[in-house]
């Protein structure tokens, strides 16, 4: 394994760390739940993905790489599901997103029709 592979791995891990930090800052700076979800998805996709890619490059081609790939794929499938469930729960218990009036009307109509669909 040449040293340039290590260098590229370093670069990936550094990028991932920077994106994790940006996601954390976003989690603190943004203004309501739905905006903070975007900051969280920054950590879930780019932060975790880049760091794991770096680790995979560093470890070479063996079982450890396969395990890293499994964890990466699993998180990429489940994190949007968890985010969507959380958004649904927040919406239906009456948390209002911080948006303009046209968007708010659209959202209210959607919620009413959805309640009719599930028969609440």
């Amino acid at each position: 394994m040449g040293s340039w592979v290590d260098l590229v791995a370093c670069l990936f891990i550094l990028t991932g760390s920077v994106f994790v930090c940006i996601g954390g800052i976003g989690l603190l700076r943004l203004r309501d739940v739905f905006e903070r979800m975007h900051g969280a998805s920054l950590i879930d996709t780019m932060g975790l993905g880049m760091i794991f890619l770096g680790l995979m490059l560093f470890s070479g081609f063996n079982l450890v790489t396969a395990k890293l790939a499994i964890i990466l794929g699993f998180v990429l499938v489940t994190s949007p599901t968890a985010t969507h469930a959380l958004a649904q729960a927040a919406l239906h218990s009456g948390v209002k997103p911080n948006v303009d009036d046209a968007s708010q009307n659209l959202l209210d109509k959607t919620l009413v029709s959805e309640r009719e669909n599930i028969g609440e």
């Binding site: 994190s79 969507h84 649904q88 919406l91 959607t110």
Partner: peptide, 19 residues
């Protein structure tokens, strides 16, 4: 939802509401 900047928050058949 996986793409940052868009989160799907509600779903009906044939239409998805996105924040």
């Amino acid at each position: 939802t996986l793409t940052p900047g868009t989160v799907s928050i509600a779903h009906e058949p044939g239409r998805i509401t996105v924040h």
